[in-house]
Design a protein around this nucleic acid. Structure first.
Length: 627
DNA sequence: AAACGCACGC
DNA sequence: GACGTACGTGCGTTTG
């Protein structure tokens, strides 16, 4: 639900009634009531405007026009594996439903879908593209994507359902998937008449709402971001997902056996040290053992009991031998459950994993990755890093290539803040954390100690991710006061950054939103809140989102250009993954030399900043070896 | 089924 | 001083 857009600042009115937060609360209550009424209203289903549509048993090419809404109905969100239920079409004058068995038999429809010059309006075109591909249909000519458009207009709204998207634009003549299919164990495909109407209403909704979204994008000067970045990216991502990543099942299985053996031994050791058996995976039981039976000091609490999180346990490491074993058990258990067993479950019949990149989800503009998540494969600790040995090229004689942007967020910050010292540092290609330490601690580069560099790195981390002094104090295990002092010294050393931070917050307070390099927006409804926590959070978000979001803009641009460059150079090499600041490829060995030159060139020139972009690249037989 | 605690990435 | 911790996904446990 939207936060109340209280436009008038009550502070300025010397008003004795409820304060701004109270008004927000009242407004939200009213909005919630009206939402409940709306839900009741739609639950009656009969209240929707009648929609006439035709169910086609054959597809006559003459029905297929340019600028039609096209919708592929999928049974669930796992479009690399779920059932395809049918296609619906909508134009100014007509609405059609084409049952799936007709779709797969129709050459006319296939030809039209594959015709790049036949423009189509869709929603979540990436899902449709990938799913159609499973039926041998290479859809082209996607000219509009409702979901992406709506996401660019407001990335903070979480909608997984078309009905929720169009409702945001005042259109309520389409049911949610949950209303049509049910949920959980009761989920099922309804009878044909209901399914057909649902599909028909979706195509109609896309067609009718499109102009409203386009107008909003144009008003906000975001049409290019949508049309030249997100829409072409959807096609590139769809190709990457469909191609997938080859996984060495045997390698994972072997690691699993070894992990289980180690876990069994650690488990016995823990029971022995505890003097009893218990479920180590239960924080509740573990808490009782550690803080009641063994009498260790409980440093931190959660809302339900003792905290047994790693940062707490690490502080207890000297106090009892059991702690070390629990930390080890946690680390290896994570590897086994998530990265061995979890990953094995995701391998398709082709021996590959086909992640889905969520392109309309994060508030900053980053992608996310699910089923499996390939953006959080371990790398930091060696034991975990070995998981990457299981990610291999899909063909013999091919290799893996990984290219990552060096300090892209801080380079973006240098550009946006125009901070002279930061710009100079990147132009000289200095180690940025050492340079930061040198400025903050007022010593020469040579005099920077490893502790000084570590502290500076944490501060840079804080700047990039918008953490609070409290967050920094937790990171560095220092007091909040000391952390605040660090930040103050940082900002004094980089006055350009100081000025940027001040002005971006001012701007957010004035406009109610912040923007990135490519005009991606994030609204900050709490920026003027009288609640300290809400307001502080919004202020940090104001500082952080342009940095993280602009970095996302840059790599997205690079991906589009990389796709074009591979095609232009006639290479067989494929881009297969994106992990926020890095791109991963598989390549025939013969193309390696060419690729190692091409990739950094394309990535470094994707966007022109007032500091250079720098890319590190490496190749190897597995993902693990690209280091 | 949903909420929680925890842990992995950038 | 506030009281919590950038952005995500997924696992196992507990709770309802």
């Amino acid at each position: 639900m939207n936060k109340a857009p209280v436009e008038v600042s009550i502070d300025e009115l010397d008003y004795a009634g409820p304060d701004q937060d109270e008004l927000v609360r009242i407004w939200n209550e009213l909005a919630f009531k009206s939402l409940l009424e709306k839900l009741d209203y739609t639950a009656e289903a009969t209240e929707k405007e009648d929609l006439n549509f035709e169910v086609l048993e054959t597809v006559d090419a003459s029905l297929l026009e340019d600028g039609m809404a096209v919708h592929l109905e999928l049974y669930d969100e796992h479009y690399h594996s779920c059932d395809l239920l049918g296609v619906s079409l909508a134009s100014e004058k007509a609405t059609y439903v084409i049952p799936m068995e007709v779709v797969v038999e129709s050459d006319a429809l296939k030809a039209w879908l594959e015709d790049a010059s036949a423009t189509k309006y869709m929603s979540d075109s990436k899902a449709a593209t990938a799913a159609f591909l499973r039926k041998g249909i290479k859809i082209d000519g996607v000219d509009f994507d409702l979901m992406l458009g709506a996401y660019i207009v407001n990335p903070s709204l979480k909608y997984t359902d078309l009905a929720d998207i169009v409702r945001e634009y005042g259109y309520s003549d389409v049911s949610t998937n949950e209303q049509v299919y049910g949920k959980g164990a009761k989920k099922k495909v309804p009878e044909a008449a209901d399914l057909n109407e649902h599909m028909a209403r979706k195509a109609r909704a896309i067609f009718n709402v499109r102009p409203v979204v386009v107008k909003k994008l144009e008003e906000n000067e975001q049409f290019d971001l949508y049309d030249k970045l997100e829409l072409p990216l959807a096609k590139v991502l769809g190709q990457m997902e469909s191609l997938g990543v080859k996984v060495d099942r045997g390698q994972l299985a072997d690691m699993g056996v070894e992990l289980k053996r180690k876990l069994g031994m650690i488990e016995q050791e823990i029971y022995s040290l505890a003097g009893q058996e218990f479920n180590i995976n239960s924080p509740k039981q573990l808490g009782v053992i550690l803080f009641e039976q063994l009498g260790l000091p409980a440093i931190k609490k959660t809302k339900t009991g003792y905290s047994t999180a790693a940062d707490v346990l690490e502080k207890l490491e000297g106090k009892h031998e059991i702690i070390h074993h629990i930390l080890m058990y946690r680390q290896l258990g994570k590897l086994l459950s998530t990265y061995i067993e979890g990953l094995l479950k995701e391998i398709h019949e082709d021996g590959k994993v086909h992640t889905r990149f969520q392109q309309a989800l994060t508030t900053t503009g980053r992608l996310s990755s699910t089923n499996p998540n390939l953006q959080n494969i371990p790398v930091r600790l060696e034991e975990g890093r070995k998981i990457r040995k299981a990610f291999v090229p899909s063909q013999p004689g091919w290799v893996m290539v990984a290219a990552d942007y060096s300090q892209i967020e801080l380079r973006v910050l240098a550009h946006m803040s125009k901070d002279e010292s930061l710009i100079e540092a990147f132009q000289s290609d200095l180690d940025i954390h050492t340079k930061t330490a040198s400025d903050v601690f007022n010593v020469s580069l040579e005099e920077v100690t490893s502790d000084m560099r570590r502290a500076a790195k944490a501060v840079n981390f804080g700047i990039v991710y918008g953490i609070s002094d409290y967050g920094l104090s937790q990171n560095l295990n220092i007091t909040r006061k000391e952390a605040a002092d660090f930040i103050e010294r940082y900002l004094a050393s980089f006055p350009g950054v100081q000025g940027y931070m001040t002005s971006i917050v001012e701007q957010a307070k004035k406009d109610g939103f912040v923007t990135t390099l490519m005009n991606r927006r994030r609204y900050l409804p709490d920026i003027n809140s009288s609640n300290f926590n809400l307001r502080s959070f919004a202020e940090r978000t104001a500082m952080n989102t342009p940095i993280q979001g602009s970095a996302a803009d840059v790599i997205k641009q690079a991906m589009i250009e990389m796709d074009i460059a591979l095609e232009r150079e006639g290479l067989q090499s494929k881009m297969i993954l994106q992990v926020h600041d890095e791109l991963i490829f598989e390549a025939p060995a013969e193309e390696l030399e060419k690729l190692m030159e091409l990739v950094p060139e394309v990535m470094e020139s994707a966007v022109k900043l007032n500091v250079p972009l720098k890319v590190d690249i490496a190749s190897g037989d597995t993902w693990y070896d690209t280091k």
